[in-house]
Structure formats: structure tokens, C-alpha cells
């Protein structure tokens, strides 16, 4: 699966596009940055409720190609600019983390 495959899911809104052909081989859910840094794996899709610039830094450090910001939280301009710079795709959803994860599993086979 690649990032592009997520885009037709109607619950997801594309906020910042990066490499849409980047591979995704699983997912991780978490809002505590150090836990994500310690436990998430490269090529995972990350679902979080955090929407500030450090999310992009963590994703870049871990080799996470795309982040879904749940609960309708919107990142600020600085975060979007940083995502562009670091090559991280940012998406948002009005759904809670569990519900979007369920959709990704059931409808996308993630």
C-alpha cells in the first residue's frame, strides 16, 4: 500500500501532499511523542490528535511517510510548511483515532 491509496477514503482530507508513492506497511496510534518515537516503525501510518509542528519532526525522524490528525484538529501554517519541507503527507479526519483506524483496516486492509 502507498500513501496515494488513502486518498479516496471520504473521511480523510489531504492537508499537505508529499510523496504519494511512499510505502505504508502498517499503522501506529499515539499522542505522546516519546512513546511514538520509541515504538513506531518506519513506513507506518501515524494517527494522532496532536497537530503541532513537533509531530512533523517525529514523523521525519522515524521515517513515517504520512500522519492522520484525528478529531478534526487542524495544524497551523508552520506545521504545514514543516511537513512540506520534510516531505511528510498530512491528512485530517473528523473521526476519532479508533474509528479512522477501523476504516483503514476494514476498507483498506491496512
Amino acid at each position: 500500500m502507498v500513501v496515494r491509496d488513502l486518498l479516496d477514503l471520504k473521511e480523510l482530507k489531504l492537508l499537505q501532499e508529499a510523496d504519494l508513492d511512499a510505502a505504508i506497511s502498517g499503522g501506529y496510534m499515539g499522542d505522546l511523542l516519546s512513546v511514538v518515537m520509541g515504538e513506531a516503525e518506519e513506513e507506518q501510518l501515524w494517527i494522532t490528535i496532536q497537530s503541532h509542528v513537533n509531530v512533523v519532526a517525529v514523523a521525519a525522524l522515524k521515517g513515517i511517510p504520512a500522519v492522520i490528525i484525528a478529531h478534526g484538529y487542524e495544524p497551523d501554517e508552520e506545521t504545514l510548511a514543516k511537513a512540506k519541507e520534510e516531505g511528510i503527507t498530512l491528512l485530517s479526519t473528523e473521526l476519532d483515532p479508533f474509528s479512522i483506524a477501523k476504516k483503514l483496516i476494514l476498507e483498506k486492509g491496512l
Binding site: D31, L32, L33, S34, V35, M37, G38, T48, Q50, H52, N54, V55
Partner: peptide, 15 residues
Amino acid sequence: ELGFGAGMGMPNMKK
């Protein structure tokens, strides 16, 4: 609130 303070900083540095 920013997602810091998970208590994983020092353990991650060691890891």
C-alpha cells in the same frame, strides 16, 4: 499538552 512528558525521553536515549 504538546505530547511531551511521556516519561520516555531518558529511556529512549538509552535504548
